[in-house]
């Protein structure tokens, strides 16, 4: 890990993200060249303007917010549990968010107001965070953490399936529930952007925590002895990670493995220091989800959650092998 690599990581990630943004604007059922994109953004080309402002821009904004939030929660959870393999998906926090969202749809709450969905997702995610805390204490072994995650994912999956099977008659609700279970960014609107926008605030709140998180990630008592208010820091970290995951789940459904893959790869690139890792992970997460969504858009039948899992599953297996 050379200092040069560390310095270049942020500009490179930023440049990559800009490239992906341009690509996301251009690619679709109707391909838009640079000229039409500019004309569409300015509103002089009406068709391009509709495609960009009503479809592609909200979708890419949601994709970026979702990616940034999942990667950031991964970073926070790994520091909290002092374990490389902790992530919102594996620990069942994402599944909690999904279960919350699905229950909200099943009981028709989502029809009352679109914004009840994120509230329900946050409640579900908080509940599973609480359960993880009880099942696996801090500094718990990898096995314990993962087993707790397995149990929670199974339990919450059952809740989701139950809601699904008990509403077989209402086709529309079932389709909505399936959407959340598979995770995707189809038909995202500006309302979804608004729903996900607190993620940006969460990212800003994360910034000053970088340094104390460094100390915490090497041992809670040691950190406390060096002057970190560990109890307070942990509360803020867990609250932020949970809310970030829940908001991402509320707008995009279950998008797995982002919180595991992105922080891990970037830590290999820029090192474990959080002041450097957090901004790179926010940008890297946004770029990763945007890239996966581009793939999902270009290949028929694929959805975002499927793409991230297709990449993340093998990566996770590789990680487990490497850990031995």
């Amino acid at each position: 890990m050379t200092p040069r690599r560390q310095r270049l990581a942020l500009p490179l990630a930023g440049a990559g993200l800009v490239g992906l943004v341009i690509l996301s604007l251009a690619v679709g059922d109707l391909h838009l060249g640079p000229g039409r994109i500019l004309a569409g953004l300015r509103g002089t080309d009406e068709l391009a303007a509709t495609i960009l402002w009503q479809i592609r821009i909200p979708r890419l904004l949601v994709a970026m917010l979702v990616g940034a939030s999942l990667a950031a929660s991964g970073v926070v959870m790994q520091a909290y549990f002092r374990n490389h393999l902790a992530s919102p998906g594996l620990l069942g926090v994402s599944a909690g968010g999904t279960a919350g969202a699905v229950v909200a749809i099943g009981f028709g709450l989502a029809g009352v107001s679109l914004f009840l969905m994120p509230v329900a997702a946050v409640c579900g995610a908080l509940a599973s965070t609480g359960a993880v805390l009880i099942l696996a204490r801090r500094g718990a072994s990898t096995e314990r953490l993962l087993l707790a995650g397995v149990a929670l994912n199974a339990l919450l999956g059952a809740v989701t399936s139950y809601v699904l099977s008990s509403f077989t008659l209402t086709y529309e609700r079932n389709a909505q529930i399936l959407f959340w279970m598979l995770g995707g960014l189809e038909d995202r609107t500006w309302e979804h952007v608004a729903m996900a926008s607190p993620i940006a605030l969460g990212a800003i709140a994360l910034w000053p925590l970088g340094r104390p998180m460094d100390l915490l990630s090497l041992g809670a008592k040691e950190a406390q002895s060096l002057g970190v208010d560990v109890r307070r820091l942990r509360r803020i970290m867990l609250g932020l990670a949970t809310v970030l995951t829940a908001l991402a789940t509320a707008v995009a459904g279950t998008v797995g493995f982002v919180g595991l893959v992105v922080p891990h790869l970037l830590r290999m690139l820029v090192g474990p220091e959080h002041k450097r890792l957090i901004p790179v992970a926010l940008i890297g997460g946004a770029a990763f989800v945007l890239a996966c969504d581009l793939v999902a858009r270009s290949v028929g039948g694929l959805r975002l959650g499927i793409v991230t899992s297709l990449i993340g599953g093998p990566f996770f297996l590789w990680l487990l092998r490497r850990q031995r």
Binding site: R82, D214, S217, E222, G227, R267, G271
Partner: peptide
């Protein structure tokens, strides 16, 4: 407190490669 006293654990569990 971090300036007044410090504690060294019996065993370190360094998970991350700082």
């Amino acid at each position: 407190r971090g300036r007044m006293a410090t504690w060294v654990p019996q065993e370190a569990h360094f998970e991350f490669g700082f």
